[in-house]
């Protein structure tokens, strides 16, 4: 009760710092619209934004064999999105994570790409380690996935998100402190499937908040494909552009 009336999570717009008076959204209308206005030139494979308009696939996708099939990235990693991601990770903002999920859904809807998520059998968020989860109190990718599915028909969405099957068993150093090669190495063997039966033959959507080099998502896809998944696609809220 008290957190609904007195302590509210979305008192300010995280990007422009204006007070949000009456909206239930986590961003002000202006900032939302300014984000919607941006049209991305995306990599055909991973969905990452490409700055050079003549190129259709990003360097990472050309140079390395990602284990996932296709990808969708809702936003580029500009300073507005940066603020949001920071709060999602370190600002104790579970509501904002769900809201980011909704934003992602709206983006898919707007670009007529709802088919990308609707044919999936399972949605699996990239997990946190136990210690990380304890510290943060929530898994931002899981809430992002739940926010995404909350826009669907409820009965459908109820158990499509499986967050306990893929787990993180190894504490890894923060990806952002490492360089490209170290990042790839860092995550090897960090993930495990607890119930491979549920994975076998399924069409899976892997959800994460942000993609930098894609090494975490690649490793997770690797584990999932190893467990017999039919297909793994990835969806991220934001990706660092190429």
């Amino acid at each position: 009760m008290i957190e609904k009336i007195l302590f509210i999570e979305n008192g300010y717009c995280p990007t422009c710092k204006r007070v949000l008076f009456f909206t239930e959204d986590h961003m002000c209308q202006k900032c939302l619209e300014s984000l919607e206005a941006i049209r991305l030139n995306r990599c055909l494979k991973c969905g990452r934004e490409i700055l050079n308009p003549g190129i259709r696939a990003c360097r990472d996708c050309i140079s390395m064999e990602y284990k996932f099939n296709r990808g969708f990235s809702a936003y580029g990693y500009d300073h507005k999105i940066k603020d949001i991601i920071y709060l999602m990770k370190f600002g104790n903002r579970p509501g904002l994570c769900r809201f980011a999920g909704k934003m992602t859904y709206r983006k898919l809807e707007k670009e007529n790409r709802l088919g990308f998520i609707e044919d999936k059998d399972l949605i699996i968020p990239v997990p946190l380690s136990k210690a990380g989860l304890n510290e943060r109190g929530y898994n931002q990718s899981e809430l992002l996935a739940l926010g995404l599915t909350s826009q669907w028909n409820v009965s459908e969405a109820a158990n499509i998100v499986h967050s306990n099957n893929l787990i993180k068993i190894k504490e890894t150093a923060h990806q952002r402190d490492l360089n490209r090669r170290e990042r790839l190495k860092n995550v090897v063997g960090a993930f495990k499937i607890t119930d491979p039966e549920k994975i076998r033959g399924q069409n899976i959507l892997l959800v994460d908040d942000v993609m930098t080099t894609g090494s975490t998502l690649n490793e997770c896809s690797n584990v999932l494909m190893g467990a017999g998944a039919k297909n793994v696609d990835i969806l991220v809220f934001a990706s660092v552009d190429d």
Partner: peptide, 13 residues
């Protein structure tokens, strides 16, 4: 709000 990990909102306060 800091004890309870709720989000302090100056306007409401």
């Amino acid at each position: 709000s800091r004890i309870t990990k709720y989000h302090y909102d100056p306007i409401n306060a």
